[in-house]
């Protein structure tokens, strides 16, 4: 667990970070989000002491980080940055081995860890382990960067705009992969980003920063439903707030028992009395996808199926509309 208490950094007369406090629980993902210059990167870098705080303190599992030598402290915290910073003269495997080697792991354990991480990130070790960074695509480099940051099984993974330099399609795919890996490994993550969609997608809670202070620290849903200020409201986006809210919840949350639907031979379903049959919605879909399908098909109800294709319920437009509400 990471505890940040009244952390402050002044550069000359400028208070880049102004007395911020938060807690990061085991297994939690917290995003620091805000515009350029709001102090989010400085905060992150004070946690692993790449920048020494002017005031306040950071505790890791109750221990003040200033009592740990910086290099030792950083070995316990993974660090992935936007520019990736892969070592160009070392192979993918050697890059990933950096922290385990510093930790003095035995060779066999390091080799096993490299293999495990490469598999996890969809980079077959036989193909990629011996490649040099310049032989990889941007997305592959970024995967190696994150894998390298996770290699030493850090207590917390610090990420600074880790997917920032990628094209939108690659970025979305990497975010999905990373989310799955994080859920599987239970990694504790502190991520800095200026991309609200990325924060909503990857983080359990968001700390919205403005001019060195945290102006709101809440779950994505609470931020959307009750933004604390006009600044937060502008940041979460006023036009598509409803859609963002929908993307936070899955269809199963609003599903009701399916009545009157019959399965056809080709995997589609037909509502009693309708002339056309419809493709069902996957149970893993978000409410946003459900709404999109409903609008596109021009119907007010769709069947929901599990992975095996068996019908588990139905989702109706009126319940989706009721999911919002309260906003102005």
């Amino acid at each position: 667990m990471i505890t940040v208490e009244a952390l402050t950094k002044t550069f000359g007369p400028v208070r880049a970070v102004d007395g911020i406090s938060f807690e990061l629980a085991e297994g939690e993902a917290l995003a620091l989000i805000g515009p350029s210059g709001c102090g989010k990167s400085t905060t992150l870098r004070m946690i692993n002491r790449l920048i020494e705080p002017s005031a306040g303190r950071v505790l890791i599992d109750g221990v003040d980080t200033t009592s740990i030598p910086p290099a030792t402290l950083r070995l316990r915290m993974g660090y992935a940055i936007q520019g990736i910073g892969l070592f160009p003269h070392r192979t993918v495997a050697q890059n990933i081995a950096t922290v385990p080697r510093l930790l003095g792991w035995p060779r066999a354990r390091i080799a096993a860890r490299i293999e495990e991480l490469l598999e996890l990130f969809g980079l077959p070790p036989a193909v990629f382990a011996r490649k040099y960074p310049h032989e990889l695509s941007g997305g592959q480099q970024q995967r190696v960067g994150v894998a390298r940051a996770m290699a030493g099984k850090p207590a917390v993974l610090l990420m600074d705009e880790p997917f920032g330099a990628l094209d939108p399609i690659t970025r979305t795919r990497l975010q999905d992969e990373f989310l799955a890996i994080r859920r599987r490994m239970g990694t504790t993550v502190l991520i800095v980003t200026h991309d609200m969609d990325e924060a909503f997608k990857l983080a359990d809670r968001l700390a919205v920063m403005e001019k060195g202070r945290i102006v709101q620290l809440d779950t994505p849903e609470a931020l959307l439903r009750h933004p604390a200020s006009a600044f937060v409201e502008s940041l979460v986006g006023s036009e598509d707030r409803g859609l963002k809210l929908l993307s936070l919840a899955g269809v199963t949350a609003l599903m009701q028992p399916a009545t009157g639907w019959t399965a056809e031979a080709d995997g589609t379903f037909r509502k009693a009395g309708a002339d056309a049959s419809l493709a069902p919605l996957s149970a893993s879909a978000s409410l946003r996808e459900a709404a999109s399908r409903l609008v596109f098909a021009g119907v007010d109800e769709l069947p929901v199926v599990d992975e095996a294709g068996a019908m588990v319920g139905a989702i109706a437009m009126e319940r989706i509309i009721a999911f919002g509400g309260g906003g102005r």
């Binding site: 790449l50 316990r76 915290m77 993974g78 940055i81 520019g83 910073g85 940051a149």
Partner: peptide
């Protein structure tokens, strides 16, 4: 030597001497 590479090395817990020996000088 790219500052990002040095930053990454520092962030991963390499000491200054180690960064010099293993990263900066070889590059």
């Amino acid at each position: 030597v790219s500052p990002q590479v040095v930053e990454a090395a520092r962030g991963m817990g390499m000491t200054g001497r180690r960064i010099l020996r293993e990263i900066e000088l070889p590059l």
